[in-house]
Every structure is written in structure tokens, then in C-alpha cells.
Design a protein around this nucleic acid. Structure first.
Lengths: 249, 249
DNA sequence: CGTGGGGTTGATTCTTATCAATTCGGGTGG
DNA sequence: CCACCCGAATTGATAAGAATCAACCCCACG
């Protein structure tokens, strides 16, 4: 059976700016076709035509690139409410592969739905622009993370980022990822991820058991990771102008 | 004195889709205020209000992040015709620093100009969306590069990418970057960049002298770097629909 | 001539990958 | 309930890649 029928996307977007009925309907169209995918299932192949995107309703997914020598790099971890493949929109073919990291429910929708939104609602267009910009800043943080931080700092940063993105207020949350997946995200071997968890544990920063991370000392962890949450905080700036323009006309 | 008065942005955008007079004028407004900056000059500080962007008319620039411990990571290398800070648009404050890598000419413009464009031209909005998506795919390629390739592969990939972005058809081009800058881009020490140039040279792939790279065997270099140019090739998909809609109304 | 910045080279150290062996935990089938 | 299997996690030993440190060269520029 298929999970909840509230729209994750509408929920997320309306947290930035109020949406009218038309806008809500346009967005809801993106989530009209919920389907289940099993852990490990592939939602889109690299190189296939980029004419279908997904909204993620529940579960975790990722975008990956696989190199000729078989090495894998995970580019994004997607959480419910996100759109899979937004950046591929401007490309003829998918550059990356989209894969389920847990059992999940996602809604495929054709490119045309996005085109409709761009034609009909400048406000929503802005919000999509913002979404893309936010994704980009996460990517930048990943470049910094992989390029300039040690294994322990990377893992600490990764955990804090997830905690913030999950909107977790309690000091523990479920992390349903294999260590090999975490490794492919942070450019570490799975073996070293294991070691690094141990290190963070020994430093008294986190405890990991049964797929649940417990953050013992958030401030220390944030400090240790060099984490600055501002890169996750997108704004919708010019929407007001557009609203005013619309009201004036 | 200030360089050429043709608009780089108009040129770049019109290579994707034809622009009418209004659109050209809107874009040209972004380049109305050319200014010179010296090599090493800082165009925008991290943490400052993100209300001013730049178009780059000539010279090279970069976006960087500096960590608490002083390490630096270069996030983008900007070439003429690009916009500096597009992704910061959805943020209240700049996340990164923008710095001149050569003497250059750039045109600052206020956020309002972009807002105007978004309000007045869905077609240009699409093109900006595409630009952002293209930047994002370059960033992804950088993640893969830093995360999963050896120093020699990274440098090879970097050089091929620049060659393609510069639209260079000849087998050599000017690379006005210090090795420390290349290192900060590829997450290598400047010392190791030096060594890596030597390695590539010994393999007969490139020759570097006097700030000029000569590519001896492009096919071999592309093969060695694992380079696939498709990530640089953005498309403008739904513009046609919008044109048709506009024509119909 | 000095001086200084960038580039090169060699020696050493550190971090992380790789390989191999072992443990742990969750199914499955007898 | 137990034996078995399998994938994941852990641990240790070793090796490779890149950083760091230090010395030196080269050259442009005063």
C-alpha cells in the first residue's frame, strides 16, 4: 500500500511563501502518481533520456556517478519532499543514476509538468530556482568537505547536516544507510567509515547503534566539523516583488 | 581603460536561443557598469549581504571558501561571460568569497536587475535556470574529480575541462593560474601540483611552459582523465513552449 | 646586484586505501 | 532450537598517495 496522501512538495514550498490554489494544484500534479520502489532499486539510469523526474514522498534515495574503473561517488542524498533530477532538466540525457537507499515511495512525473509550472507561475519558478540554488550550496559544502576535511571531520559534518536537514530536535535520529553508502558519499572506504565512527565515539561526540545515531554533544560536534548551517537556509527574495507586481496589474 | 563593449552575456545566451530586443536590453543592463579589478582583488566578501552580483567581461575569477584553519577551497573558476554569485541569489548573505585571478573587467549589478528579468521574461528566467543547472553539473564533476580521481587524473580532467570551456580548438591555450590556485581548486598542495605536471609531461600528455599548456595528445588525455564532455552541454528545453504560448496569446 | 615570489626537487610523515581475517546479526531451512 | 549462510561491521597489517618541510633554482623587478 502507498503512504500518506499529503503532498511533501506543497508542504515544503509553502513553508517559504504562501501559495494560492492554482499554485498548490500545479505542485500537487507532481505527486499524483505514487509508486513503491525497493531498497536498491534504480529509478533512472545514467545516459537515459532526462524526461522523467521524481518527487520523493517517503524513504531515502541518492544520485550517483560510477566511473569507468567501478568507483562510485554519491552526489546527493535525497530526503522526503525533495525532487530527484531537477538539475538534469537542462540536459538531454541523465548525467547520474538515481537509486533507492531504502524502500521508498516516489512519484514519477514528466518534464512537461515542470514546463507547465514555469509557464504558469513565476512564483513557483522562483521557488524552483531557489531549490536548485540550495542544492548547489549543499554540493559546495560537499566539495569543501571532501576536499579539505579529514575523515572524522567529514563524517561529523555529514551527520550534523543530516540532523539539520531532517529537522531533528531530539539528540538522536535514524540513519538507514550502510557504511559503504556513507563511504561513497564522503569519498572514504567503508572500512575507514567504520574506523571513523569509532573515533568519533571515542571522542565522546556520537554513538551509533542499530542504525540510530545519538549525538552526545551537539555543540562539540558542530565545532569539530566546522559546520555552519547558513548554507542550508535558502530564501525566496524577489517573490514579494512579483506578488506586488501581480497585485498592481 | 575598459575593454570591449559587446555584451558577453547576450552573446552567450543568444547562442542557446534567439533573443528579442526587450530581452537583449534586459540582459545588457547587467553589463552597464564595467570596472577594472587587479589580480588578487576581492570582489565580494563572504558573509556580506548578497545584494550585488557581477558579470565577468574579461579575465579570470574564482569563488572560494576559507576554513577556520586557513585552508582554502576554490569552488568555481569563472571565465568571461559568466555570472559571479548567481547561486548566492537565494541566500541572504554570501556564502563564498569572489576574487580576481588575473586583472579583469567585471560589471557589478544589483539584485533588482535579476528580479526585473525574472518578472519580465520567462524565457530569460529559463536561461538563468539552465545556467544554474550547468554550474551545478560542473560542481558535480568537481566532486567526482576530487573524491575519486588521483592527482594526475584530476589535473588532466581540469585541463580538458578548461580547454572545452574556453572553446579552444588549437592544441594549446594560456593558463594564467598559479599552481597554488590550481591546487586549491583540485584539493592538492601546490608542491604536488608541480610534481603532477611533471608526471603528465613525462607521460607525453601535456607540456606546460610560460603559462601556456600544450596538449600533445588530446584523445589520450581525455581517456586518461575519464572526461565526458556531456556535463558541459546544457539545453534550453521548454523555451519553445513558452514562445508558442506567447505567440498564441 | 639584491630581493622575493613562484616553481622544482628530495626526504619524511601522515592519512587513508587495500587486503585479509574475524565477528556479529538476521534470515532460512532442517 | 539449532546449524548454516550471508551481508555488514570491525580489526589489524601493509602499501600507496599526497602533505609537509626544507633547500634550492630561476627570473622578473627594484
Amino acid at each position: 500500500m502507498i503512504a500518506s496522501n499529503t503532498s511533501c512538495i506543497v508542504e515544503r514550498f509553502s513553508s517559504f511563501t504562501p501559495l494560492n490554489e492554482t499554485e498548490t494544484k500545479l505542485l500537487a500534479a507532481l505527486e499524483s502518481d505514487p509508486r513503491e520502489y525497493a531498497d536498491g532499486a534504480c529509478l533512472a539510469e545514467p545516459g537515459s533520456r532526462a524526461n522523467r523526474f521524481f518527487t520523493l514522498k517517503s524513504g531515502w534515495a541518492c544520485a550517483t556517478r560510477t566511473l569507468a574503473n567501478g568507483q562510485r561517488q554519491i552526489l546527493d542524498i535525497f530526503l522526503p519532499g525533495q525532487i530527484l533530477g531537477l538539475r538534469e532538466m537542462s540536459f538531454e540525457y541523465n548525467l547520474s543514476e538515481f537509486r533507492a537507499l531504502t524502500n521508498l515511495v516516489a512519484c514519477p512525473f514528466p518534464r512537461q509538468h515542470l514546463s507547465d509550472i514555469f509557464e504558469q507561475s513565476p512564483k513557483l519558478t522562483d521557488l524552483f530556482f531557489m531549490t536548485l540554488a540550495q542544492e548547489q550550496s549543499m554540493l559546495i559544502e560537499r566539495v569543501v568537505n571532501i576536499g579539505r576535511r579529514t575523515a572524522a571531520e567529514r563524517l561529523a559534518h555529514f551527520i550534523v547536516e543530516l540532523k539539520v536537514r531532517l529537522n531533528q530536535t531530539s539528540e538522536q535520529f535514524s540513519l538507514p544507510l550502510k557504511q559503504s553508502v556513507i563511504g561513497d558519499t564522503l569519498s572514504l572506504s567503508s572500512v575507514h567509515v567504520s574506523r571513523t565512527f569509532k573515533t568519533l565515539n571515542q571522542r565522546g561526540l556520537i554513538t551509533m547503534a542499530d542504525g540510530v545515531v545519538r549525538i552526545n554533544d551537539l555543540d562539540a560536534l558542530v565545532e569539530f566539523a566546522g559546520f555552519d548551517r547558513s548554507y542550508l537556509e535558502g530564501h525566496c527574495h524577489w517573490t514579494k516583488n512579483i506578488d506586488m507586481a501581480a497585485a498592481a496589474s
